[in-house]
Design a protein around this nucleic acid. Structure first.
Length: 102
DNA sequence: TCCATGACATCAA
DNA sequence: ATTGATGCCATGG
């Protein structure tokens, strides 16, 4: 029973997350806007935190607006590196290049 | 219903 | 770059 966060919302977010091309990343705000809830960036994060439980989603391709990685996602950096995402340093992605353009 | 929390965003200093 | 404050919306107790 995973659908606690408005099943509909989850579907919209995950649908977009799945669309993120390899080697690219997306910000929560950008994602929120794509699903029609530009103010619900937090919801996106909350949903993504559960996304792994719903199935296999590239939640590691989702970072905050600063290109900062998730707080409890140690493998994220390695995963993104594997996909060819350019890092500015150990904690930030080069959004300038890696941000996904929908 | 009210209050607290949150993998956020944006601005000011 | 870092910290603090404010906004925004949904969830859970």
């Amino acid at each position: 029973m995973a659908e606690k966060l408005t099943e509909n919302l989850i579907y919209e977010i995950l649908a977009v997350v799945e669309e993120i091309p390899r080697g690219k990343v997306c910000s929560y705000g950008q994602l929120a806007k794509l699903i029609g809830r530009d103010k619900n960036a937090r919801l996106v994060g909350k949903v993504l935190s559960h996304a792994e439980q719903f199935g296999d989603f590239p939640c590691h391709r989702v970072v905050n607006h600063a290109g900062r990685l998730a707080p409890a996602f140690l493998n994220q950096k390695a995963l993104l590196l594997e996909e060819g995402v350019p890092f500015k340093n150990d904690t930030h992605v080069d959004m300038k290049i890696a941000q996904w353009q929908a």
